[in-house]
Nucleic acid binder design. Structure first.
Length: 738
RNA sequence: GCGCGCUUAGCUCAGUUGGUAGAGCAACGCUUUUACACAGCGAAGGUCGCAGGUUCGAGUCCUGCAGCGCGCACCA
C-alpha cells in the first residue's frame, strides 16, 4: 500500500492538518466535550506571540511555533485542558510605514495628501489581505492553535481592552501627560520609546570651542545657539574661581552673549575639559540639569530638523547642512580650538527603519514607572495585597520572588539590569494607525474615558499608543478581559470563562530580543490590572542565523524561507532542525543540510512502520502471557528512554528530548531491535515470534506518540494506518506515566 | 563605562547535582542478497581557549587573562 513508496510529506501534511483542524480538538472545550480531556483537568495555556499582520512567516516564527506546539501537543496528550491561542499584531508603526511606502510608490502621494480616514481605510484593506497569508503559513508548520479564539490587536475586544487599561491607569495616576524630553524621529515625525532607539557607532569630528574663558567640546555645534549656561563640577579645582550663578560676557556664534555658571555633580571632570554648555531642549542630560536648577531652555531645532530663528543667519537651514557652516564661522571668529577627527560617537537612530533621533521637549503621554500606587488585590508572590509599590518594583519582584521564572536564568540578570535603568515609558505616537488615546479636550477641560464624552466641542487627542502598550495586555485581553473579568468562572467551558481558566498562562515563549519591549510590559500590565503574573515561565529562544552564523537578511541573500523548506523537506524536518541542538537563549545556526538530514529521519520512521506492519499482518499483536528476559530487557531500555524524554520535556529541555528520541528510534529501535528481530521472525519459534511482534508494535506505537509533539505530521499519518486506531494521535494518552 | 554570554572532533553543538569526553552533519573504507541507498556496517578524528586554585578526582566549581559576540548607557 502507501508504505511501499518513500514518505512524501507534501501529500501527507495538508491532509493531516485538515483532519486535525476539522476534528475541533485544538479547542480544549471540544476535547472535554468529546471525552478526551477530563472537565476538571488542570489547564495549560500559551498565547501565541502575535506575528505582524503584514509580515510573512520567517524562520524565527517557525522556531517559536515549534517550541510552543511541542509543549502544547505534549500537554494535551498528558490530559491537560490545553489552550494555545492564536493572534496577529497590528504593529502600528511598521504597518503604517509599509502602507505609506506603497502609497508613495504607486501614487506618489503621502498620508497628508489622502488624510487620516483614507489612510486607515487602506491600512485595513492591506492588513486584511496579509492576515490570510500569515495564518495559512502558521498552519503549514503544524501549529495546533485554537482558531476559534483567534484575536487581532485591533479588533473590537482588544481595542476595548486597550481603552479600559489606559483609563484605569490614568485614574490611578500612572499615566500622565507631560512636557519632557523625548526621542523624536524627524523622518517618521513621531516619538519613539527608549527601547526602540538603537545606537549606532559612528566616527564624528569632535570640536573644541572657546566659550569665554573655557574650552567646551561637542559633536553637535548646530545645537549650541541657545547655550547660555556653562556647567562644571563643584569639586573641580581648575574652575575654583568661578562660582555658581556667576555671569560672564563672552563672544559666541552670532555675537556677544551673557553666560551663567552652573555647578553640578552630573559633570564628569575626566571628560574633555570638564566643562560643558547645555542645550536643555535637545539633550536628555542637559534637560535634567536645567530642570534641577530651574534654568530656561529654548528650542533650536524644529520637528523636521530645521534650525529655528534663534540660529540667526542659519535659521531655516537643515542641521546636516548647517553643521559645517557653523564650524566654519566659529573658526573664522577664532573660536575653534581644535578638531579631533578620531572620535567615535554613538548616534541614536530609530530601529524601525526611521531616521536619526533628535531629542526634543514635547508634550506626550507617559507611564510613570517610579510612582507608588496601592495594589488592591495581589496574587503575585512577594507582593502583599494592599501594599504600595511602583510599577518598577512590581516588575522586579514578580521575577525576584519566583512568581515568574525566566529561562535561561541568566536573562533574569539582564532583566534586572534593564529595570534598574528604567525611565518613564513614552506611550504616545504621532502616527495614525493604532489605538487612539482615549482622551478628549475642550478648551481647558480634559476628559479621559473609554467613550466620547457627551456634549459638543470635544476633540480627541490625535495621537495613538505605542504598539507595545496593547501588546502588554495580550495575555489577558485575548482571554476576555475586561468584558468577562467579573463573571469568568473556573472550571466552566467557553471563551467567556477563559480568564479564570487560563490566566496566568503557563509559558511565554518568545525571542530574547523582545524581553524588554514585550515580556517586561506584559508583567507590568498584568500586575497592575489583574494583580497577577501573566505567565509562570518565560522561555526565551535565540536568533536563527544562517549556516555561517550571520544574521539572515535580504541584502545578504541568506534568508531561509520556512515555507520553501516545508515544500522541499516537510514541516516535520524543519521542526526537528529547529529543535535539536538548540538550547534556550542561544542563537541557532541553521543550514539547509540540517533540514535535509531530518527529512531522512522522517523517512526512516516511515520505513520502520512499514517493516512492523508487514510483520504483524495488519493486526494489533496481543500481549503475551509472559515475556522472555531478553524481551523484558528491550522493553526496559525503551521505558528508560520514555521516562527520560518525559522528564526533559517537563524541564523544557526540548533539544535533549528530541535528540534522545532521534537516537533511540534510529540507533536502538531500527539498528538493533529490528535487526535482531529479523532472525526471530524468520525462525520457527512461535512464542518468540509473537513476543517480538508485540514488542515491535508496542515500541512503534509508543514512539509515534512520543514523537508526535515534535513531528506531528508523519506520526499522525502513520498512526492512522495502524490497525484499530480510530482516534487522532494528537489526543492519544502519552505513553509514559509517572 | 556597566552588564550578560560564548570558546569542547573539520563544521554545528550537547555534556542536568564534579567521577577517565558525546551526537548530528561532513569526510574516509566496505556493502547494492536488506523495512529503508532519504540505507547498513566499520574505522578515523579532541592536551574541552590560556594560566593558576579548590578537590582523591575538574569540560563541569573559584580566580585571573585572552579572543569573539551581544545587551544596556542622556560622556558633553
Amino acid at each position: 500500500e502507501k508504505f511501499l513508496k518513500p514518505y512524501n510529506p507534501k501529500t501527507a501534511e495538508e491532509e493531516v492538518y485538515r483532519r486535525e483542524e476539522e476534528s475541533g480538538l485544538f479547542n480544549p472545550d471540544k476535547c472535554v466535550e468529546k471525552g478526551f480531556t477530563k472537565a476538571d483537568a488542570l489547564t495549560f495555556s500559551i498565547v501565541l506571540p502575535p506575528p505582524n499582520v503584514t509580515g510573512t512567516l520567517h524562520v524565527g516564527h517557525a522556531l517559536m511555533l515549534v517550541v510552543q506546539d511541542i509543549l502544547i501537543r505534549y500537554k494535551r496528550m498528558r490530559g491537560f485542558r490545553t489552550l494555545w491561542l492564536p493572534g496577529t499584531d497590528s504593529a502600528a508603526i511598521a504597518t503604517q510605514s509599509k502602507v505609506e511606502e506603497i502609497l508613495y510608490k504607486e501614487e506618489k502621494k503621502t498620508r497628508h495628501d489622502i488624510g487620516r480616514e483614507e489612510l486607515l481605510k487602506r491600512i485595513d484593506k492591506f492588513t486584511e489581505e496579509s492576515k490570510a497569508i500569515i495564518i495559512s503559513q502558521l498552519k503549514r508548520m503544524g501549529s495546533s492553535l485554537d482558531w476559534s479564539r483567534y484575536a487581532y490587536t485591533m479588533d473590537e475586544p482588544r481595542y476595548l481592552a486597550v481603552m479600559e487599561a489606559f483609563v484605569r491607569m490614568h485614574k490611578a495616576g500612572l499615566i500622565y501627560r507631560g512636557d519632557r524630553i523625548v526621542n523624536w524621529d524627524p523622518k517618521m515625525q513621531t516619538t519613539v520609546s527608549d527601547e526602540e532607539v538603537e545606537r549606532v557607532e559612528q566616527k564624528t569630528p569632535f570640536y573644541y570651542f572657546k566659550y569665554g574663558p573655557f574650552t567646551i567640546g561637542t559633536v553637535r555645534p548646530e545645537t549650541k545657539f541657545g547655550d547660555k549656561y556653562v556647567v562644571m563640577h563643584p569639586n573641580d579645582d581648575r574652575y575654583k574661581e568661578y562660582s555658581h550663578g556667576q555671569q560672564l560676557n563672552l563672544e559666541w556664534i552670532n555675537g556677544p552673549i551673557t553666560a551663567t555658571v552652573i555647578k553640578d555633580e552630573a559633570i564628569d571632570m575626566e571628560v574633555g575639559s570638564g566643562v560643558m554648555t547645555i542645550t536643555p531642549a535637545h539633550s536628555g542630560i542637559d534637560f535634567e540639569i536645567a530642570k534641577k536648577h530651574g534654568l530656561d531652555s529654548e528650542q533650536v531645532i524644529d520637528e523636521k530638523g530645521i534650525l529655528l530663528p534663534i540660529a540667526g543667519e542659519f535659521a531655516g537651514v537643515h542641521i546636516k547642512k548647517a553643521r559645517p557652516a557653523i564650524v566654519e564661522k566659529l573658526k573664522s571668529k577664532g573660536l575653534l580650538v581644535k578638531t579631533d577627527n578620531n572620535y567615535v560617537n554613538t548616534v541614536a537612530t530609530n530601529s524601525r527603519g526611521g531616521g536619526i533621533i533628535e531629542p526634543q521637549i514635547k508634550r506626550q503621554w507617559f507611564v510613570a514607572v517610579n510612582k507608588p500606587f496601592v495594589i488592591e488585590d495581589s496574587k503575585i508572590p512577594g507582593i502583599a495585597s494592599g501594599s504600595s509599590l511602583t510599577l518598577r518594583e512590581l516588575m522586579r519582584k514578580a521575577v525576584e520572588a519566583g512568581g515568574i521564572k525566566i529561562m535561561p536564568d541568566n536573562f533574569e540578570k539582564v532583566y534586572y539590569h534593564w529595570i534598574d535603568n528604567l525611565h518613564d515609558w513614552c506611550i504616545s505616537r504621532q502616527i495614525w494607525f493604532g489605538h487612539r488615546i482615549p482622551v478628549w479636550y475642550r478648551d481647558q477641560e480634559v476628559y479621559c474615558g473609554t467613550k466620547t464624552p457627551e456634549g459638543a466641542g470635544w476633540e480627541q487627542d490625535s495621537d495613538t499608543l505605542d504598539t507595545w502598550f496593547s501588546s502588554g495586555l495580550w495575555t489577558f485581553s485575548t482571554l476576555g478581559w475586561p468584558s468577562f473579568a467579573e463573571t469568568a468562572t473556573e472550571g466552566r467551558p467557553g471563551p467567556e470563562n477563559d480568564l479564570a481558566n487560563y490566566h496566568p498562562t503557563a509559558v511565554l515563549e518568545t525571542g530574547y530580543d523582545i524581553l524588554f519591549f514585550w515580556v517586561a510590559r506584559m508583567i507590568l500590565m498584568s500586575g497592575f490590572h489583574l494583580g497577577e503574573v501573566p505567565f509562570k515561565t518565560v522561555y526565551l529562544h535565540g536568533l536563527v542565523r544562517d549556516g555561517k552564523g550571520q544574521k539572515m537578511s535580504k541584502s545578504l541573500g541568506n534568508i531561509i524561507d520556512p515555507v520553501e523548506m516545508i515544500d522541499k523537506y516537510g514541516a516535520d524536518a524543519l521542526r526537528l532542525s529547529l529543535i535539536i541542538g538548540n538550547t534556550p537563549g542561544m542563537d541557532l545556526k541553521l543550514s539547509e543540510d540540517r533540514i535535509r538530514g531530518y527529512k531522512n529521519f522522517a523517512n526512516k520512521i516511515w520505513n520502520i512502520a512499514r517493516f512492523v506492519l508487514e510483520n504483524t499482518e495488519g493486526r494489533t499483536p496481543e500481549k503475551p502471557e509472559s515475556i522472555s528476559p531478553a524481551g523484558e530487557e528491550t522493553l526496559k531500555i525503551f521505558k528508560t528512554t520514555l521516562s527520560e524524554v518525559t522528564g526533559d520535556i517537563e524541564e523544557y529541555r526540548l533539544y535533549m528530548a528530541a535528540e534522545k528520541l532521534y537516537h533511540f528510534v534510529w540507533h536502538e529501535f531500527a539498528d538493533k531491535i529490528i535487526e535482531e528481530s529479523k532472525k526471530i521472525l524468520r525462525g520457527e519459534d512461535i512464542e518468540a515470534k509473537s513476543e517480538i511482534k508485540y514488542i515491535l508494535y508496542t515500541i512503534l506505537s509508543d514512539c509515534l506518540m512520543t514523537l508526535h509533539p515534535f513531528m506531528p505530521f508523519v506520526t499522525e499519518e502513520i498512526y492512522s494506518s495502524l490497525p484499530g486506531n480510530k482516534n487522532l494521535l494528537m489526543v492519544s494518552p502519552w505513553p509514559h506515566k509517572e
